[in-house]
């Protein structure tokens, strides 16, 4: 594909290399969220990633959960926002809220 580094092509390439991979997808947004629903991130077992699910505010937390999903093989839905108790560490500076679906690829 042309343009920006393709998330799903890279995920496929990593799997071909014998690595573990999980995907994060923005499934819901409220207020001014930086990335629209459907935006994706692919995470490799060593924490390398392509794509984005926010303006960089929550990627760190999503990567941690993605690595956990690779380990236990389970999907999870994460919610981030200013009202969240984790707001101080990984809140969205824009004041928006997002829900991220994280799933291992296997």
């Amino acid at each position: 594909m042309s343009g920006e580094t393709d998330v799903l092509d890279t995920a496929s390439q990593w799997l071909g290399d014998g690595r573990k991979v999980a995907l994060g997808t923005v499934i819901k947004t409220w207020g001014s969220a930086p990335r629209q629903a459907g935006s994706q991130i692919a995470v490799r077992d060593d924490g390398a990633f392509v794509g984005s699910v926010s303006g960089g505010c929550i990627e760190g937390a999503v990567i941690e959960e993605a690595i956990a999903a690779m380990a236990d093989g389970k999907v999870r839905t994460l919610e981030f926002g200013v009202s969240d108790e984790t707001a101080w560490s990984v809140g969205l500076a824009c004041g928006g809220r997002v829900e991220i679906f994280v799933e291992p690829v296997h």
Binding site: L8, A11, S12, L15, L23, H106
Partner: peptide, 11 residues
């Protein structure tokens, strides 16, 4: 997601 699904989407 299954690897086959990822491949089918990419194809």
């Amino acid at each position: 997601m299954k690897i086959e699904t990822l491949k089918a989407i990419n194809n």
